[in-house]
Amino acid sequence: MKTSLIFLLLSYLSLLLNTTSQFPERLSFLHIDLLPALLNWYALNEQTFKGAFFILLVAAISSLFSVLPFWSFFISYLIAFLIIRYICSNVLELSWLHIHLLTLFSSIEILVIEMIFTGTPELLWPYGMTQAFFNLLLSPFLFFIANTILKFKEQTSTSSRE
């Protein structure tokens, strides 16, 4: 439950940051989008069914920040979540690099589905790919924040139990 609450809270903060921050001039098409990295972190730390429910909630919150339909967010987030769940539970032991490459993968997947919903899939290159690589750069930073909060939460709950 702690993981899910952290996921919800950080998702909301990430959405606020994404929709209010803008880079100047030529880089203005890039946004600070921490959600794919967050989805990746969540998929690595949560069970499938419980996780799917919270993905639904985050998709609902995301749709409040956009003119895109709720389903576009839900489908794109859920597919990314389920694939990462599948990879980490069945396929291989993930290294640090693999974990962050999964953020790149989920970014591309989310962008493709959402661009299809807006009728502009041709924007994947160069815009979408640049954004996805930018998300990859932000991924270690997000993992550090999320893990630190989770650790802190676990420590405080252990000490309160004692």
């Binding site: 920040f65 956009s66 895109l68 807006t118 954004q131």
Partner: peptide, 14 residues
């Protein structure tokens, strides 16, 4: 202007 759309490739502002 207080914000932009989550789908940042769309030119939509709040």
């Amino acid at each position: 202007v207080v914000g932009f759309d989550l789908a940042s490739w769309r030119a939509i502002i709040t």
